[in-house]
Nucleic acid binder design. Structure first.
Lengths: 296, 296
DNA sequence: CCGTGCTCATCTATTTTCGTATAGTGAATA
DNA sequence: TATTCACTATACGAAAATAGATGAGCACGG
């Protein structure tokens, strides 16, 4: 190993890995395809091994290249975050803030809050990542995250907003048509909207709904937005945040005394960003606004 | 923002931030000072603001540059880790593995183990980071970490080796000279070696040594290697792992029944590295060898 | 069956970047 | 006060990377 390769090779490598071909990576990076080819060639020579198998339909990564994928993604995220931070005056409330939140929070709660924040700080721009990945902050994919699990990381500034209350809800039309269940025991006869798998909600729900099996759900989806849309469409009985349901006159609470549980709501920021005025401002503003989402 | 700046600017920026001057950064990077100056200039133009105040004694970072420091360090660590991984054949047990461990473990336990591993895999090279920072793995500063606290991170492969037993020890010469304490109550009359501050051990020790105050320690150091050296030099009574003390005939256990506590020993690796043969191999080999360090 | 659209590879002219050499400036030292 | 030393800034020729154009191979669809 004589000298370290140019970091631009890393950027090109990441793009090729993501796009799947030299040409596509070139388009994404705004450079030409021969340059991309040279970069990959140089990187392969630097590490002493092939990274891609060339074919007429693109490049397929070797095991060696796949092993680099997490690093490549980390570099892309960190460099983007760095450029974003660098491009903003640290004293001024301007520049871009990336916020990560669950899909439901991002679609149902955040838009009016963000609109209000932007009205107050017109030079601010917001990027909203609708994702449930808990490690967004560490991966530098977001500046601020809104989470519904207790944070375990160090080096984070976390503030607990309160508890988001959830309950069973259905559209009034559905209940008029099918009747209102009087106990949990009657639920299996109804059209139930439930979670599929891979959802952190799964365990919480099965704990709160004794006797209801995976197969009892008539519609199963891990997409919470779809879940909510199904309730609103009168498909059946599903789980919904009480504060969201309260906004919609057509939604009626089902068995509010028998089924209820809460999730913690946190707003979290990386420690390093405390010195950034724009991140601090958005963090504090959201922390206030989000109080409308919780019940306690 | 027209086009993203070259990632090489980031590398140069990180070097200037670390070294404190254009010339020093140039030496560290193996390029020339005018190139470094050009890079910084280009970066400043790209972000639209000054990053350093030039002076005859070097460059001092502005607030804006300081805000970028964590990102810069992350980029440096991730790119180094990526290059390290890329330079090794994933099938072969070769290349470099970075191991992070506490100073005591790194000095007292690991050397013979690593020597044995290297005898078995001659193409392997080892980098050993003696540090107690728990986030080494997330920062990509190390591939494998040996920790004495329970891991809280997700996305880690962690294996609990057992419990490291600690006790009070002193050199035989010291005890011959000053006598052997028969109870904890007699300890304040002795020369005690203790921890200073900022040590995770502090709380554990004060819990196990009731009645002993910070001021009762005659020698206070947070450096565990110094602590051990002081015991061996006959300075007084200090805390030592029983397995380390057992190797040294001159060290005698003090109040073994009255004072004893254990710390968990973990070996931890990032999930992504499971597919790397060399990391997996070293991980497993260390997991076996480290069993000699624990008592249970 | 042949065109169309995609890909990667190769060659050359041009632009960009880099290194060398040198000048200039302030602070510490004798 | 003169000198040395480390630093930054500037100018210019050399080297390197880039863009552009072109050719060839493979898959898909009419």
């Amino acid at each position: 190993m004589s000298t370290e390769p140019s970091w631009d090779l890393y950027r090109t490598f990441a793009a090729v890995l993501r796009e799947g071909s030299l040409s596509a990576a070139a388009r994404a990076l705004g450079i030409t395809q021969p340059s991309v080819a040279r970069h990959i060639e140089a990187f392969e020579q630097a590490v002493g091994g092939k990274l891609f198998l060339r074919s007429q339909r693109g490049l397929s990564p070797t095991d060696r290249a796949l092993a680099l994928q997490p690093y490549a993604e980390e570099l892309v995220a960190a460099s983007a975050a760095m450029l974003r931070t660098a491009s903003a005056d640290p004293e001024d409330i301007a520049g871009t803030v990336r916020i990560s939140a669950s899909e439901i929070v991002a679609t149902e709660h955040l838009p009016p809050m963000l609109a209000a924040i932007r009205r107050q700080y017109p030079k601010l721009s917001i990027e909203l990542v609708a994702s449930d990945a808990v490690d967004d902050l560490l991966q530098r994919r977001a500046d601020i995250a809104i989470r519904m699990v207790d944070p375990v990381q160090q080096a984070l500034v976390a503030r607990r907003i309160g508890t988001v209350q959830l309950g069973l809800y259905a559209h009034r039309d559905y209940l008029d048509r099918r009747g209102r269940p009087q106990s949990i025991a009657e639920l299996p006869g109804h059209d139930l909207i439930g979670v599929d798998r891979n959802s952190s909600l799964s365990r919480a729900i099965s704990g709160a709904l004794p006797g209801i099996e995976h197969g009892d759900f008539t519609l199963r989806t891990d997409n919470t937005v779809v879940h909510l849309a199904a309730i609103r469409a009168g498909f059946g009985i599903g789980i919904c945040q009480t504060r969201i349901a309260a906004r919609d006159m057509a939604l009626v609470s089902v068995l509010p005394d028998a089924f209820a549980f809460g999730l913690p709501l946190w707003i979290v920021m990386h420690e390093d960003l405390r010195s950034s005025a724009r991140c601090r401002t958005v963090f504090n503003a959201l922390a206030v606004d989000l109080r409308d989402v919780v019940n306690t």
